[in-house]
Structure formats: C-alpha cells, structure tokens
Design a protein around this nucleic acid. Structure first.
Lengths: 149, 149
DNA sequence: TATTGTTATACTCTATAACTATA
DNA sequence: TATAGTTATAGAGTATAACAATA
C-alpha cells in the first residue's frame, strides 16, 4: 500500500535531472551577460535577504563557505552584488544586490520562465494543476537542507 | 485562466534545484566508490542501451562529444564500462557496462532511492499520488531534449 | 578560544577548437 | 569530403585544509 513511496522516489530520481538539464541549457543559452543556475540562486537569495552574511548565504543555499566566497567574488566583480563590512562586527560582511544585479536577475528570471512556460503549454489544465500541487508539496520536503535527516 | 502555466513554470524553477541539491549531496555522501549524478546518468543510459556509440550517448544525455569521451574514459579506467571497437565501422565504439559497473549502478541507485524514500515518508498517500503523477507528466515534457523547441 | 572570511589547492563537469583515423 | 572520436585547453563550480582577522 504505502509502497508507493518507493515509486515516488524512483520517479523523482529519474525526472529531476531531466528538468535541471533543460533549465541549465536554457540559462546558458541567453547570449549576453546571463546567469548559471548557482549564480541565479545566489542572486535570488540576496534579493530576498538584503544584508545577509556569507555564512548565512552559504548555509541557506547549501554551499561550503569558500565556495560561496568565490561565487560572491565573481558577482561583485561583475557589478551584480556588493560586499560591505558589517558595521558592528568587522569580521562579518553584509551582502546585497546592486541595481544592476536586480536588473540582471529579473531579466534572467523572466527569460527562463518564459521558455519554461512554452514547454509547459502542451499540458492540460488538469495536468498543470497536478504539477503545481506536486511542486508545492516537494518544496518544503527539500528546502530544509535534508542532509540532517 | 490558463495563466496557471506561468505559476507552474515559476514553481518548477524554484523547486527543481532544491531537489537536485539533495540528490547530489546524497550521492556524494556514500563514502566508497560512489557516483556523481552525471556518472549515474551515464551508467543508467548504458545499462539500457548496450552497445551504444559515444555520439548516441552524448546526444541522449545532452553532453558534448568530448565531454562524454572524457566521462567514459573515467568509467572505463574505473572498470565500470567497456569501450570496444565496432566490428563493421572502425571509427565507432561500442559502449557497455561491465559486471562491476552494473553492480555499482545498482548499489548507488538503491542507496539513493532509500534515502529519497525516507525523505518522502512524511507525505500522505494522496500527496505521494500527486507527486507520482506530476513526475509522469513532466518526464515526457523534458526528456525530448527541449533545446529544439 | 571561537567565529567569519579568504587563500591555496585539487577534482569534477563542461565546452570549443584542433586533430586523427576511418569511411 | 564527411563522420566518429580523442586531445588540448580553458573555465565554472565544488570541496577540504590552512590561514588571517576579529570577537
């Protein structure tokens, strides 16, 4: 009966990489100053978490600290993010998006969503409802870094 | 009305990377001779497509030819795959899994599925049904390399 | 001593360009 | 000339270990 958990697992393991491949390819395809998936995720996080520290960002996104340090270095040098000293604790750093970063994020998001929308157009309304609901179910399952479980 | 296509797109763009992060982390975690996601996908492909050529494999998995060549080189040197000359066309190569490769693939798949199963255990039967159905809807949408669309 | 970041180093995945061998 | 694959090279993303600066 509850054996369907395993079917579920199998099918996610099969389908998730296909979806990500499409997203990655699409993001890479925009010629011009576009974003990789990890860059996109970092900018998205900063957009919602003005003033976050490196550690906080790394923790949330699931990257090691030096990795995040390097990624941010790249974003700063491209003018997409700023990295200021925290006023009261000089070890820390306060990250935020620049106006340019916000603009780039928005452009990338819109382009990728538009492409994704076109892929999904062949779905019936019922199918779309099912997919939407499933994603809302899976989000919470996977957004708390499941490393701990 | 059919505006839900865009919601769908948004939510996939948000959730898919979370799922993949969990899968990647899990696959990396098995200490011992385990597999990265791309390696896993290649072995899976070879398991179902005995005797495939490099070009075929690259095309199906969505990698450039030299990338696939290098990945296969790695798998061969680890004893997981074999790369034989095609009998009638000596430019081509016939790829397959070794017994060891099949064993490794099986072990990795089982371990990752088991972990995934444990993550999904908190879902109700109805939620699992929804997720299962959604994955079966998304599979076909994304498995024809959507670069063409 | 503990925390926050950065630097050094290395490995995997990925691509494009140039090349070799076969057809 | 065209196709299948490999080699050379480069760049992104990732990690661990060692370090520096601040608390």
């Amino acid at each position: 009966m509850s054996q369907s958990t395993e079917d579920c697992a199998k099918v996610i393991l099969e389908v998730a990489p296909l979806v990500m491949r499409a997203i990655r390819t699409e993001m890479r395809r925009h010629r011009g100053p576009e974003l990789s998936v990890p860059q996109f995720r970092i900018l998205t996080y900063l957009n919602r978490n003005e003033g976050a520290s490196l550690s906080q960002a790394a923790e949330h996104i699931g990257l090691a600290l030096p990795t995040m340090s390097k990624m941010i270095e790249g974003a700063v040098s491209r003018g997409l993010a700023s990295r200021l000293a925290h006023p009261s604790d000089r070890r820390r750093v306060a990250l935020s998006l620049t106006a340019e970063g916000r603009k780039t994020l928005d452009r990338a998001r819109r382009a990728t969503e538009a492409q994704m929308t076109s892929w999904l157009q062949r779905l019936s309304d019922g199918e779309k409802r099912t997919v939407l609901e499933a994603m809302r179910i899976l989000g919470p399952v996977f957004s708390a870094p499941p490393g701990g479980a």
